[in-house]
């Protein structure tokens, strides 16, 4: 429990003239379960991208698992990316591939290239994939084309992909926003269960405030690219949460 998993200080991200994030300071310790809430456009997805190393910060310092993203070599970054699993809102699976390959894509960071290429013809480590699919409850879908699965099933495939990746940290970007509410609650509790089981750190962006307040110990409020609050669930008041969204309502009609 010595060094933090993530340490951001003064992180900003700009796309041309648009500022997506500005002056974000955030530290995540091992074993924590953090929910990020905030109105749409607040910069939640950008924050996830910065954390898993697919979006470069335009200013500030990003350290993930002891690796300084701004100074490390591509190889070192990939090494730390390998230990961070991400689940995306739109699942972000390759629909044309069979489920087994999409799950195995979680191993790409640790496989040599020849093994990755060979696996597309003769799937490798099928048992491990099968175990992961069993764990997320779709063990019978191993050889289905991913695009043929329903939304909830696809998100389970994405979770299985993270499971075989064997990460120390799971990032979830609106994991349930594209699924119907009942399935969404199932997926969410599955995620929480898994993180407790293996003891991985979990950081999730959620649009659903109820869900965030109900299941996470630490809640971070993001608004217009800046952190509005960062508190223990117990210390958070309803007024603070309302203010996060009230601000949006006041400025929205432009």
């Amino acid at each position: 429990m010595s060094s933090p998993i993530f340490a951001l200080s003064g992180v900003g991200v700009r796309y041309g003239k648009n500022t997506a994030l500005a002056g974000v300071d955030l530290t995540v310790e091992p074993g924590e379960r953090v929910a990020i809430i905030g109105p749409s456009g607040a910069g939640k997805s950008t924050l996830i991208g910065v954390l898993n190393g697919t979006i470069a910060a335009t200013s500030g310092e990003v350290t993930a698992l002891g690796c300084d993203y701004r100074r490390a070599s591509a190889r070192e970054i990939r090494k730390s990316q390998r230990r961070v699993g991400t689940i995306h809102q739109r699942f972000d699976l390759v629909e044309q591939l069979r489920t087994v390959h999409n799950v195995n894509a979680g191993r790409l960071g640790s496989w040599p290239f020849w093994k990755a290429a060979l696996s597309l013809l003769l799937p490798r480590d099928v048992q491990r994939v099968q175990a992961a699919l069993d764990r997320v409850g779709i063990g019978d879908k191993l050889h289905h084309r991913t695009g043929d699965l329903s939304g909830g099933e696809q998100q389970r495939v994405a979770i299985a992909r993270v499971l075989v990746q064997d990460p120390v940290m799971i990032l979830a970007d609106e994991p349930v926003a594209s699924i119907d509410p009942a399935r969404g609650r199932e997926i969410m509790s599955l995620l929480l269960e898994l993180s407790a089981e293996v003891g991985v750190t979990l950081l999730a962006c959620l649009h659903d405030v109820e869900m965030a307040l109900g299941s996470f110990e630490r809640v971070v409020g993001l608004r217009a690219g800046q952190i509005a609050f960062d508190k223990k669930r117990a210390d958070l008041t309803d007024d603070e949460v309302d203010a996060l969204y009230a601000f949006e309502r006041a400025t929205e009609p432009r």
Partner: peptide, 18 residues
């Protein structure tokens, strides 16, 4: 999906294959 695969730490050639 390409970004998602890259986020697992896969190199460009593996992203290309998968």
């Amino acid at each position: 999906p390409l970004r998602a695969i890259r986020a697992t730490g896969a190199s460009a050639s593996k992203v290309f294959c998968y």
